[in-house]
Every structure is written in structure tokens, then in C-alpha cells.
Design a binder for these strands. Structure first.
Lengths: 237, 237
DNA sequence: TCACACACGTGAAGC
DNA sequence: TGCTTCACGTGTGTG
């Protein structure tokens, strides 16, 4: 019943033109197979079952074709319209994307491990993943419930050569975790692990990081600055 | 003659990885068909033509299935083995890869140019919560506002009476932590601690929770459902 | 003519 | 149990 119909209702339009659109035939014929209404008490439901099966199968094919069409839509350069070619191009595109991503990640890793001093005293930048606060359109869907980060404890300790461990305890608000993540990202440090533990109404954050400067107090000040920058959304820039 | 027999090899090494070689193998039946020879001289060449057509069609299906299999092999998080699901996951993965590439490129551009003041290029924000306007890229009608959670591992174990520990590993995307937090909140369970560890490009989540039902599989299914609900925005609840 | 690509209906297998 | 997915053979249309 409706279950079948609305279950896979994910049609996004995908009109796109595929060149005169022949052989479509997935224009829903829908109920030209007159045998509906069930109520065949004569122990032979074959007609009804068959028609249901046909409909189901038709629906399945349509779904698969739509997905394939959608796949074609996201792959930039499709050579041919074949189903097999679409999948082939998609595979190549994925591999290409992944290789590029890998290359770029290496580059970024080189770049940020190479020169960190650039950011050491630069607190004005608050994080890469920090946009979306732009309310240039009048609609403000979100009355900012942003609480500042309530720092209860912050300690920085050296461990060995260049490794430092940061322990931070703060109160738990609705968006504190997100803010903490932004703080972590904005640190621009080489972070080995970042652990966030949620317990009761507190957050315990533990960072293991590798830092050339290796000055406890300096790192602590930097973290405090980052927290202050993120914590107060009106202030940055 | 032998032309019919020799089966057309086509150079696409379908083996690749064996990766989760379960017993599924949805169609390697390889139905043998002894009836060749055709040679029906009476006015019905249908046998030869039909057999050739059958063979061709069979070959086409096999090629398409192999391609689909290869596609599944290059997509990391395959939720289901369905054909349609494979394509769906591939689409999401491609969009995710592309968005990530974009984000990383912005990051690298920020990083290598010391001045950040020109962040006013906000018409192209990568954005965590992207408004669904931005169809300036006519090629993709619907850039996804968010990416699914890439679950790499999920285990639930009982510890003692009512205490359970949940271990979850997933890929680290831009908004995965927030999604994980949403998942945790949506569980409506009595959570003792929740620990999120960020290491490399992965997230390790450990939950200690108290649950009356105390059924490992049930809790696991519930978590999977919650992840799926959060991860797939177009299918709420 | 032939080769190719497709949609269709059908029976079977799995959960 | 029914519902879903699948491979199969077949007919049709196109280049």
C-alpha cells in the first residue's frame, strides 16, 4: 500500500535532458493491469500476486535507474551514456578524487608541520571550520544560544621531547563540544589525539600534541586565547 | 562454433580485493547451457540468433555486475549490498570527497597565505550547515547539507548487571562529531560517560551506559538506527 | 543486415 | 508469512 509508495520517495528531480528521451517507458503506466480489488476467493491469487510482483519489480527497476541517473549527474565528465560506462566513469572519478585528496593532504601536512611559527602569536584567526555565522540574510533561524566555554581547569604538561598533554575541564552546555572542536582546530597544532569525555554536566578534554616550542605556559596562553576567541562569538574579527 | 564457447574475457580484473568475502556473491551461478550447435535449417533461425542474443545479454549483465562490484570496492562505507544502495553510497561518497577536497583546498590556501582578513569570500563557504540554496553549480542539483556517518566498527558489550559499553569507530568528517553528539542525545539512554577520541582521520567513541533492557544486539540495532536517522537527513525518523 | 543496449515479466531465493 | 532482490530469457528499438 502506501508503504511501498512513500518508502522510496526520494526522487530528486533530475530532469536533466537525456537527448530526446526515448525508450523511457518508465512513465508510470500504473494500473492498466485491470485486476485490482483483490477479493478473488477462488484460491488462485496468481493474477493478483503476479501483478503485485510486476509492480514491485517495475518499481525496483525505476529506483535503480534513478540512482544510476543520479550517479551520472555527480560525475563530471561522462563519456558515454551506457549504464556500464556510467559506473566505470564513476569508479575512475572516485579514484581520481581520492588520489588528489591524498596528495593535498600530504601537502597540507608538510605545510603545517613546516612552519608553525607563523601562527604562534596570531590569535585573530579563529578556526578553519568557522563560518555560517553570517546572517547576511535577514532570516535568523537560530537565536544564538551560544554560551561561553566555562573553563573549570586547564593544565599543560610536557611529556618527553616534544610531546605535550593538555587537560581541560569545562562545563557542558549544548554547544560546548562543537566549540571545543573549533578551538582544537583553531590551535593549528600537530595534534596526535584529542579525547573528549562527557560525564555528568562536565566535559573533560585531553589533547596529546607535538609542539616545537615546547613551552608549557605559552601553549596554555594560546589555548586560553583560542577559547576566548571561540567562546564569544561577537568578538572575533 | 568456438566463438560461442570462448566466453569473451574482458580484462577487468574482477577479483581486486576479497574484502568481506561473505557467502553472498549475489550471482555467480554461472548457469551452464549445453545447447549450442544451432543449425536448424528450417525457416526458424531463432535458435542461433536467440542463443547468440542470450549470450550477449548474459555477458552484458555480467559486465554490469562486475562494474558494480568494482564500484563497491572503491567506496569505503557500504551499508548494504543492494545494487541501489551501492550506487547511493557511491553518490554520497563522491559528494563527500568533493566537498572535502574543497574544504581542504580552502584550508591550504588559508594556510599558505598568511593573511586571513579576506575571509569575506563568503559566497563560497564550505560551511558545516550549508543552506540548501547554492545551486550555482548547475551540475549537482542537490549538494548534500551533510555527510553520513562513516561507521567503521561498532561493538556493544555487557559489563556486569546493567552496564554496557559501546565502542564505535567512524571516519572523521567535518561535522561528524556534531552528528555523533546528536546520535548520543537521540539515544535517550542513561549515559554514564561518553568519550570521543580524535586520532588521525578517525573518531573513536566509547559510551558507558546503563540500560534496563541489557541486550547487546538490541542496543546495537538501536544505535545503528540512530546513526542512520541522523546520517540520512532525507529520511527523518 | 547485425550488433548493441535496454525494459519487461517471470520464477526463485533470502530474511 | 509476505516482501524484496536477483538473474534470466525475450522482444523491441537504434545505429
Amino acid at each position: 500500500m502506501e508503504n511501498i509508495l512513500d518508502e522510496y520517495q526520494y526522487y530528486w528531480e533530475t530532469n536533466m535532458f537525456l537527448q530526446t528521451e526515448e525508450f523511457d517507458s518508465w512513465g508510470v503506466d500504473e494500473a492498466f493491469y485491470g485486476s485490482y480489488d483483490s477479493s478473488s476467493p477462488d484460491g488462485t491469487p496468481s493474477s493478483l500476486e503476479a501483478s503485485k510482483n510486476i509492480l514491485s519489480e517495475r518499481n525496483r527497476r525505476k529506483k535503480l535507474n534513478d540512482r544510476l541517473l543520479a550517479l551520472r549527474a555527480v560525475v563530471p565528465n561522462i563519456t558515454k551514456m551506457d549504464k556500464a560506462s556510467i559506473i566505470k566513469d564513476a569508479i575512475e572519478y572516485i579514484q581520481e578524487l581520492r588520489a588528489q585528496e591524498k596528495r593535498i593532504e600530504e601537502e597540507i601536512s608538510d605545510l603545517e608541520s613546516g612552519k608553525i611559527k607563523n601562527r604562534a602569536t596570531n590569535e585573530d584567526d579563529d578556526g578553519i571550520l568557522r563560518e555560517k555565522r553570517t546572517n547576511k540574510n535577514g532570516q535568523v533561524p537560530e537565536p544564538p544560544p551560544s554560551f561561553p566555554i566555562e573553563v573549570l581547569d586547564l593544565r599543560v604538561n610536557c611529556m618527553g621531547e616534544k610531546t605535550m598533554v593538555v587537560s581541560l575541564t569545562c562545563g557542558r552546555r549544548s554547544d560546548t563540544i562543537m566549540k571545543i572542536c573549533q578551538v582544537i582546530e583553531s590551535l593549528k597544532m600537530k595534534i596526535i589525539t584529542a579525547t573528549i569525555t562527557i560525564v555528568a554536566n562536565k566535559l573533560l578534554i585531553t589533547l596529546f600534541l607535538e609542539e616545537e616550542i615546547a613551552e608549557e605556559e605559552e601553549v596554555k596562553v594560546k589555548i586560553e586565547a583560542a577559547i576566548a576567541a571561540i567562546s564569544d562569538p561577537q568578538k572575533p574579527i
